[in-house]
């Protein structure tokens, strides 16, 4: 009870500061989301066209995915220094895996009859990809986007350990000055942002799933 009151008091007194952090958090994760979204999508499309490479690429992505976030940040510091850049790189590396996996699975589990029809009617490989395969895989790919977005927003919470901005700043400060309300206040905002984005993307995904198969 006391904790909740303390959190509410923090929001009241330092509302502007939290809003600033929330905005920074949004920008930081947004950059990583755009990067891993496009890299993962392209990589997923690439290995879907060349299935022989798929196990190797997915293997590498899986390994990167299992490195604990905090140690990935630590490993990157000597190369990219501290600050937002390192955080964005680490978050991007994480986000690529769910994107590659879902894009690959989405594109390789399509109804072969429909692909036969598309090819038989004289589609070029690019036309089949853009007009048939990607739209039909959109539901599965969007599930990957959703997964990746929620994960990126939440993992971005530890980015302040390498000097990046965002709500991690309040979490980190809460820990160092032993103020649990400060840590909780930041975490609640992260969770809310993640839940909101998850909900919005869920709506989009549902729309595409309807036509997916």
């Amino acid at each position: 009870m006391e904790l909740i009151q303390a959190i509410l008091a923090l929001y009241r007194e330092r509302g502007g500061w939290f809003l600033g952090l929330l905005w920074d958090h949004f920008l930081l994760s947004g950059q990583a989301i755009l990067l891993s979204g496009s890299i993962g999508l392209l990589l997923g499309i690439f290995i879907a066209q060349r299935p022989r490479l798929a196990p190797a690429v997915m293997g590498v992505c899986n390994v990167l995915y299992t490195i604990p976030a905090i140690s990935l940040l630590g490993i990157l510091i000597p190369f990219t220094g501290i600050g937002n850049k390192t955080a964005v790189i680490a978050l991007t590396i994480y986000g690529v895996m769910p994107m590659v996996r879902n894009t690959y699975v989405g594109l390789t589990t399509l109804d072969p009859d429909i692909l036969e029809a598309a090819a038989g009617m004289g589609s070029t490989a690019m036309q089949t990809l853009l007009r048939v395969k990607l739209p039909m895989a959109a539901g599965v790919i969007l599930a990957g986007v959703r997964n990746m977005v929620v994960m990126t927003v939440s993992v971005a919470g530890i980015a302040s350990f390498v000097g990046a901005g965002g709500l991690g700043v309040s979490i980190y400060r809460g820990i160092t000055i032993y103020d649990p309300a400060m840590t909780a206040a930041g975490s609640i905002l992260i969770a809310s942002l993640a839940v909101l984005l998850d909900f919005l993307l869920g709506r989009v995904e549902k729309h595409f799933k309807k036509y997916g198969s």
Partner: peptide, 14 residues
């Protein structure tokens, strides 16, 4: 230049 209907129709669902 060749019309083709496959065994299971294969309409595009989207």
């Amino acid at each position: 230049g060749i019309g083709y209907t496959i065994q299971n129709v294969g309409l595009f669902p989207h």
